[in-house]
Design a protein around this nucleic acid. Structure first.
Length: 542
DNA sequence: ATCGCATGCGCC
DNA sequence: AAAGGGCGCATGCGAT
């Protein structure tokens, strides 16, 4: 069964039950308590729910204790279909989709919710759209999305998984975090003051420059200070500073590291993002053009490794941490059908295996070669290494080089499941097409840059396909158990579960990885190992 | 006072 | 001197 949902203010709503094959109306319903209605119907029928946007509706259902298994998200789907039609960035809400079908003016998307906004129990500004309109958009999407059914289903399920993860929250031990901050930075400073250790380092930096005032937070000020000492640096990037022989370098590097911890993940972050022992980021499903997720606030996908110490399971519970090993080169092997690279992928350490096959056992060089192929890099002597790779793995290298050529010519490229890259913007496209003598250089550079983007897109986006399918497959497998998926980051999943269930969860993870591989790359011989460990502390994983 | 851009670093 | 793809975020700083 398929049920269209049109939420109204104050938790009310309208619903239409549709025939799953024809999408014809079976019955209409209105209710003052949408959550309860959905909860009852879910228990009895487990339909596919059609939501205008799970992001807006599902948190309220979860708040009311209602979960659903399956949905079709009209907003997420519209985003995929628009991109597929070369219309990245158009409004993708259902009302805009309907307007497009009828040649009317398209209402813009609503601005995203305020940073770290506390979700209201029942939002009253939720746009109410008629069931007729929603059904029309749904049918249109089924037609337009014929070739991307798995991607649409996975993206929609991802929308549910994201809301559930925010609802669970990542178990966060505030005490551990505070101890770490005190250890690194000193006691929590008064408002407006710098932590002791940062102040001390700043003083050391000034000393090292002979007492001249220097603001270590200002790159320009640091560059000027070095210039006074006769040292020219192009920027204050850490990797560049490391090459400089000067007493200020060491305290500067330490300052940068600690300052980042203070400003990005210090006491202020803790107070605004961790409540009752849980960190609840807002995930933005498909927020990156490649299909990777983003987050709104909280920098959840950029947690410094040092902070993983603060992620602790509750007493009697465990964390199962799973990480796809070297996902992107495996994806390239499967995408391109390169038999030899498929054989290399049999090893959990793909780079070691690649080194043994083609680089005299030099893992570092093997890795540089592979990364250059996937990113289009040429530095670090990558050129000759790439040549070796091309000779030994012509299909794999040919695959990314074709994607690069497509991009250089302004064509779109697609991920395995059909997610589509944007076209170059009008300005870049105009530059890329210029052939006059004075612009030739810039034209070629613009084309090469876009080629690097599309080269990487096919790999990164197909890896995101695989990881998304893994996530939603795992979600389905864990439904009805006590286990909670609590974190998802590109190629990594964390599950929080009763300690006794952890081995079962690990088994489900392995099964989900195999299932994802079969769904995304049917028939491939490429191996996609998932390294998982059962721990009490995220910092102890691997 | 407020905004947008550049810088630089965190993660994958 | 730049160099390899994708992001989010805090800060500095000039423009408004």
């Amino acid at each position: 069964m398929v049920v269209m949902v049109s939420p109204e203010a104050e938790g009310a709503g309208r619903l239409r039950v549709l025939d799953p094959v024809t999408s014809e109306k079976i019955s209409d319903h209105t209710t003052a308590d949408l959550a309860s209605w959905i909860g009852r119907y879910e228990a009895e029928h487990q339909p596919r729910w059609v939501f205008p946007a799970a992001e807006a509706l599902y948190p309220q259902l979860l708040e009311a204790g209602v979960r659903v298994a399956r949905c079709h998200d009209l907003t997420l789907t519209e985003g995929i279909l628009l991109a597929s039609a070369g219309q990245h960035g158009s409004p993708r809400n259902p009302a805009a989709a309907w307007a497009r079908l009828h040649g009317r003016a398209e209402p813009p998307d609503k601005p995203p919710p305020a940073r770290n906004a506390q979700p209201a129990l029942f939002e009253t500004d939720q746009e109410t759209l008629s069931l007729d309109l929603l059904v029309e958009v749904y049918r249109s999407q089924l037609g337009r999305g014929e070739g991307q059914r798995l991607l649409i289903a996975a993206e929609s399920a991802g929308g549910l998984a994201a809301a559930e993860m925010t609802d669970h929250g990542l178990p966060w031990n505030e005490g551990v975090h505070r101890e770490l901050l005190t250890e690194m930075l000193g006691p929590k400073p008064a408002p407006g003051a710098r932590p002791d250790k940062l102040a001390a380092l700043a003083a050391r930096i000034v000393d090292a420059f002979g007492g001249h005032p220097v603001n270590p937070d200002s790159p320009a000020s640091v560059v000027r200070a070095f210039a006074r000492e006769g040292i020219d640096i192009a920027s204050t990037r850490a990797w560049l500073l490391r090459e400089v022989d000067h007493p200020a370098v060491e305290p500067l590097l330490e300052y940068k590291e600690l300052a980042r911890m203070w400003t990005a993940h210090g006491w202020t972050w803790l107070d605004s993002w961790v409540h009752n022992g849980r960190f609840r980021p807002d995930y933005v499903v498909g927020g990156v053009v490649s299909g990777r997720w983003a987050t709104r606030g909280g920098a959840a996908l950029q947690l410094p490794k040092a902070l993983r110490k603060a992620v602790r399971s509750l007493p009697g519970w465990s964390l199962v941490v799973a990480d796809a090993a070297q996902l992107e080169p495996r994806v390239l092997a499967a995408l391109s059908g390169d038999q030899r690279l498929a054989e290399v992928s049999a090893d959990v350490d793909l780079y070691a295996s690649l080194a043994a096959d083609s680089f005299d056992g030099d893992r570092g060089r093997a890795k540089i070669a592979m990364l250059s192929a996937m990113y289009g890099g040429t530095s670090g002597g990558a050129g000759p290494l790439l040549a070796v790779l091309r000779k030994r793995f012509p299909q794999a290298v040919g695959h990314v080089e074709q994607a690069a050529r497509d991009g250089e010519q302004g064509f779109m490229v697609r991920s395995r499941l059909g997610r589509t890259s944007p076209r170059p913007g009008a300005q870049r496209m105009a530059l890329m097409e210029r052939t006059d003598e004075e612009s030739l250089q810039k034209s070629r550079q613009a084309a090469r840059e876009w080629g690097r983007f599309t080269r990487n897109f096919v790999v990164q986006a197909s890896a995101a396909d695989w990881a998304l399918v893994l996530l939603v497959t795992l979600r389905r497998r864990l439904a009805g158990t006590a286990a909670e998926i609590v974190f998802y980051q590109h190629d990594e999943v964390l599950v929080h579960c009763p300690a006794g269930d952890a081995p079962d969860v690990s088994a489900e993870l392995a099964a989900a990885a195999a299932e994802a591989t079969g769904l995304v790359f049917p028939g491939t011989e490429v191996k996609f190992p998932l390294e998982s460990s059962i721990v009490d502390c995220y910092g102890d994983a691997k």
